[in-house]
Amino acid sequence: MSASEFDLLRTVTLGQYLPTGSALHRADPRVKIASGILLVVAVTATSSLAGLTLAFALVIAGFAVARIPIAYALSGIKPMLPFLALLGIFQAIAIPQNDANTTVYWRWAFITLTARDAVAVALLFAKFSVLVWGISLLSFTTSTTALTHGTEHLLRPLQRIGLPAHEFALMVNIALRFVPLLAQETERLMKAQASRGADFGAGRRLNFVQRFRKLLPLLIPLILATLQRAEDLILAMEARCYTGGKGRTHLVRFRAQASDYAILALVLIVLAATVAAGFTSADATVWRIVSTVWR
């Protein structure tokens, strides 16, 4: 069955949530979101392979608890492997490591593959895997609603110091709600234009100016129609007494259980270790062993 050339909705289906009903699915979304954010921070901040291994183990444990097959997450990483390889080569070529202290494994013309390059590529790969799997785990175990509610509640303390936490959560909510509407609107516009002779047929190669020319009569009415919709929504919200986050109450309330605190504590400890490993000689030890084996 062929997809229609106007079938935009297909590309914007959010099919990430995998309800298996596990303990991790039932955990407080605030804890899961906080863990996700901590993971991103820790992974970005560390430069230790040993530390990343720890974080990796944490994520894998999460998958086991959530009863989600690891293969699910693997499929997300596969398309990236060639790129990572490319990046590794690039690293070896473009950023010469003129450092006498490093072991040179391989040399060809101006390309040198040194131990430092190997470490850099391995680090890149490890960071990437941990991030992809960590964030996938969050989206597999938390529904969009839980995510937005959780974020809002998590940010609520910031409200006291004047940061618009509620507004941010509401804005994200509206944004997520509008993406499929935009897809519909675009589909309608494309169909209406095609009906009157516009040619969206794929296949023919268009140069850049032609592509932009074709895009303009689609994008401008799309944005204007979106703004018009926004006007309607503004009226609807004002009619329902929306005046910002101050003084609002909330239908959804979260109560953290002992297990939620336990999860948070575990995550904190592991990620602290991940970051700390960057400042210790853990990696150096690991590398000495690896280098010895190589020789």
Binding site: M171, I174, A230, I234, M237
Partner: peptide, 20 residues
């Protein structure tokens, strides 16, 4: 309401443009 909604729909537009 205007600020939140305009931010939301324009954010949606950015997401949509990137996604598709």
């Amino acid at each position: 309401a205007r600020k939140v909604v305009i931010a939301g729909v324009m954010g949606a537009l950015a997401i949509f443009l990137g996604w598709t």
